[in-house]
Write a protein that binds this DNA or RNA. Structure first.
Lengths: 342, 342
DNA sequence: TTGAAAGCGGTACCAT
DNA sequence: ATGGTACCGCTTTCAA
């Protein structure tokens, strides 16, 4: 059913029908009501592509999904979906097999110029992220999830990774730990750098020398957590505490500790960052896992919200949101053992 | 830059330019080359929404993302993205907060009639799934990931859940296990039913009475695995083996077994279904986890491929793909203990 | 308050 | 091999 046909049914002009459905004020209330009812009854829905062509709006927000099906990503998107439910705005996932943000430039470029989306969300930026520069140059609306150090004004939403790591690390130091390993995210990403900084600052504030060998970078996998923790635990003197970048990493660390016959919360303390997944929770681990926590889903929901504001005309330079991160202490952290023997 | 303008630059008509770019055969090879080069140089790209309007194609495949950010889902989508990379076809994620497939009917209906996508993928169908009936009635192209028992002809891709569970269960029985718990997926989904059947058939073939109390249904979370396993392990006589529906479930089961002071692979055997996640692998667990395996990412990639075929004109009734599932034995399975004492 | 008609930016039919 | 032009289905001036 097309507008013209539908309008004829009603004995009205396409113009009036369009206005009635579009909520324009100049339409008679009676008329509007009748149009709305008939639209439902006859199942008339405007052709979205015609609307898009004429209005220039796409009705979708773009995200780029890399090769790795990051579990964080799904949770974030699910949060976006939650917020966008009922808004008549979709999420467009643009495929790419490229992983590095530099390689993804063409994707973002295409996305921004193709008219398929009204805005995009940029993930895990680097301090000087090419994607941000590109989108800014194109004058295309975007929101960064995470932060960068670029001069380019842009909207962003981030969590306080630095504060999170500072608190986690400080807490461990206060418990007497001196050799604290940090298994961080991929090198080069701003969030990893922020975590590095929080970790180092905490050590420095408490007069503990920073040992670069105790910091490792990599993807958030169970395997990496395991392998790294195993190898750290073989060193002498061995570390007494681990800060893990993700729940998956923590799983690996837990296993490594146990496989060495050590006890978590007594011989080895562990704190991880928890993005709050419905399927894997720190309180259920044994022993329950102390964690810095921030909901990835909420971040997704709020991001969608901010993008909507951006599209509504709010200046990007006004949209900066830094979320605090809680530190939740559970059983995996305890006083440093008086003397660690390997 | 619009077509008209671009054509003027080249001293050609919009028609010829459109044809040259669209790859139509009747264009002079020289002309085509020149057009292609200039398009790149001048950065001309056809307005996608105009193309969509005139061709009636949307250039996107739809998926509906429920409230739960299922980790499986991300992996599946990532596989789709992999296959669609370079195809100029996007994935459109339609938000919904509704979980039940019946509640999702309006979403699918909207998606199918809105012109935003050319086809949709239906996930985790029930034996008699309303979504399939709806899409068929609408004459809208779709692929089912999973199976249903409806009479309605439709394209589908599924893994052999029944065979997987039959083999897993049979193997356990052959090892002498008699009380085998199955922690299955949500009740009512075809895949859960298939797994139930595989489990029951295996028991029956080997003359072991089916005990409905040993089967539980629910979502694939670590917590559920833990809680259920804990409670089963308190029973007397207690089970000697678990079949877990997912890796997350298996994590919970592992913890529960250990928390009871029992040893996996000796006191208790465990087999789980592994969808192959980059961040959590059965071979890294301790003890390494025996598993039925099928890559969710591959399924996503192949699904995208099949949707493309469907859109290319291949009849839906021809597209049926059932993937075998491997059983990979590792250390978590062993002979049943001669006498289980609680 | 309602309607007529000019686009939005392409594609594809029909000529040439 | 190339060009003219009638749509695709809707929104939005401009006029009434």
């Amino acid at each position: 059913m097309k507008l013209k046909e539908f309008a004829r049914h009603l004995g009205l002009s396409p113009t009036t029908v369009s206005r009635a459905l579009g909520g324009y004020p100049e339409v008679n209330e009676q008329t509007r009501k009748r149009v709305a009812e008939e639209a439902v009854r006859l199942g008339y829905r405007p052709n979205i592509n015609a609307v898009r062509l004429v209005t220039g709006r796409a009705g979708a927000i773009g995200v780029v999904m890399g090769r790795t099906g990051e579990f964080h990503f799904a949770e974030f998107m699910s949060g976006m979906a939650e917020r966008l439910d009922g808004e008549d705005i979709d999420i467009l996932v643009s495929p790419t097999t490229d992983r590095d943000s530099t390689d993804q430039i063409p994707i973002y470029s295409r996305l921004a110029t193709s008219g398929r989306v009204d805005a995009v969300v940029v993930h895990s930026p680097k301090p000087n992220d090419e994607r941000i520069a590109l989108l800014h140059d194109l004058g295309f609306p975007f929101l960064v999830h995470g932060r960068s150090e670029t001069e380019v004004p842009h909207a962003w939403l981030d969590i306080d990774n630095e504060g999170a790591l500072r608190r986690a690390t400080s807490h461990l130091v206060d418990l007497g730990h001196k050799r604290i390993v940090m298994i961080n995210g991929p090198a080069g990403r701003t969030f990893s750098l922020h975590r590095d900084k929080g970790y180092r600052d905490a050590l420095q504030e408490r007069g503990i020398a920073f040992d670069p060998r105790l910091v490792a970078h990599g993807h958030f996998t169970d395997e990496l957590g395991f392998r790294l923790a195993r190898s750290y635990l073989e060193q002498s003197p061995r570390p007494t505490a681990f800060v893990a970048g993700s729940m998956m990493t923590a799983l690996g660390v837990y296993r490594a500790v146990r496989s060495r016959g050590l006890t978590i919360g007594r011989d080895i303390s562990v704190i991880a960052h928890d993005d709050v997944f419905p399927y894997l929770t720190p309180e259920n681990m044994i022993p329950s896992l102390s964690a810095t926590r921030s909901s990835m889903r909420s971040a997704g929901a709020r991001s969608a919200d901010l993008v909507l504001q951006l599209l509504g005309g709010r200046p990007a330079s006004e949209i900066h949101e830094l979320w605090p991160v809680e530190l939740i202490l559970r059983e995996s952290t305890g006083p440093a053992p008086t003397e660690a023997k390997s």
